[in-house]
């Protein structure tokens, strides 16, 4: 549905992306993992149009697109939740959910209409915040969920979540995982960025690994890769070495058994793993 290919981006002397591509299909939860600084957020910013790439292309439904920003992307069905918190803390929770123009009645913003539209999405995410409180009064986790709620209210076909669980407590993260699944089941393409590998293994149908601005594991079926091989791909060496700046992710991901949990289904189309990259052992 959304295909990015050959993206190149330098920041001064730093190579953020060096020919990166990724394919998002309808009905999949595609995880993008990589260490801090691997280039994940840069990829998101390029897709949203906030950052201009030096090379490469993005296609939506086979048509080349270049969004001018998150709003235009949203208008074409691509909703993006960036890594940085983008809530308007002085505005009410409801107002935060409709930044591009709240529903109106007789020319005025309709609180009732906003509430009606937001209720099912809030319920799906499992939060019930005080709707007229300032968003800044909510705990960080709720604000993060608020942004996801905002994205879902755009009724996107492609949903991009950049580290959505970084501030979430476990049960909220689990709930989000459930939501992600349901969205994929409805035919959305979800790009799910995280560096919690355990979490990724749980919810992704496919995994792409980025290291130093390059794809080292392109869209492998999540069932076919082990946690160890992911760690190896991320670090460029088996985790045990832990040399360089890299020791953290392995440790953070925990050492839960990597096998796919019994309940895992593969939303259609069946996860395919593009050729190459014999990373799965």
């Amino acid at each position: 549905m959304l295909v990015a290919s050959g993206l190149v981006k330098h920041y001064g002397g730093v190579t953020a992306l060096d020919g990166v591509g990724i394919t998002l299909d309808a009905g999949e939860v595609h995880a993008l993992v990589g260490e801090n600084g691997a280039g994940k957020s840069t990829l998101v910013k390029i897709i949203s149009g906030v950052v201009r790439p030096e090379g490469g292309a993005i296609e939506l439904d086979g048509e080349p697109v270049r969004f001018a920003g998150a709003r235009q992307a949203a208008a074409q069905g691509v909703a993006i939740v960036s890594q940085e918190l983008m809530t308007y803390d002085d505005l009410t929770v409801l107002e935060n959910l409709f930044p591009y123009g709240a529903p109106r009645r007789r020319g005025l913003v309709s609180t009732r209409e906003m509430r009606r539209l937001a209720a099912p999405v809030l319920e799906e995410l499992g939060i019930d915040p005080p709707l007229h409180a300032r968003a800044g009064e909510l705990p960080l986790a709720d604000r993060q969920l608020l942004e996801i709620c905002r994205a879902l209210l755009l009724e996107p076909r492609v949903l991009i979540l950049d580290e959505p669980t970084s501030a979430l407590p476990r049960e909220a993260a689990a709930r989000l995982a459930g939501v992600t699944w349901r969205l994929a089941e409805r035919g959305l393409a979800v790009l799910y960025i995280s560096h919690f590998l355990e979490e990724v293994m749980r919810i992704a149908t496919r995994v792409t690994v980025l290291r130093d601005g390059r794809v080292v594991l392109p869209g492998a079926g999540a069932a076919d890769v082990s946690l160890d091989s992911l760690v190896t791909a991320m670090l460029g060496q088996p985790a045990a070495h832990g040399a360089g700046p890299a020791a953290a992710p392995g440790g953070r991901s925990g050492t839960e058994p990597a096998a796919a949990p019994p309940g895992r289904r593969s939303p259609s189309p069946a996860s395919r793993s593009p050729a190459g990259c014999g990373t799965s052992r």
């Binding site: 920003g69 983008m86 308007y88 803390d89 505005l91 930044p99 709240a102 913003v109």
Partner: peptide, 28 residues
């Protein structure tokens, strides 16, 4: 008061003042 609290324009004014970076990113 109505313009400030109950219209899209008023909400945009407050949103931009509240978080200019988000407003920029969000394409307001």
């Amino acid at each position: 008061t109505v313009l400030f609290t109950r219209t899209r324009f008023g909400a945009r004014v407050r949103a931009i003042g509240s978080n200019p970076e988000a407003a920029e990113f969000g394409g307001l």
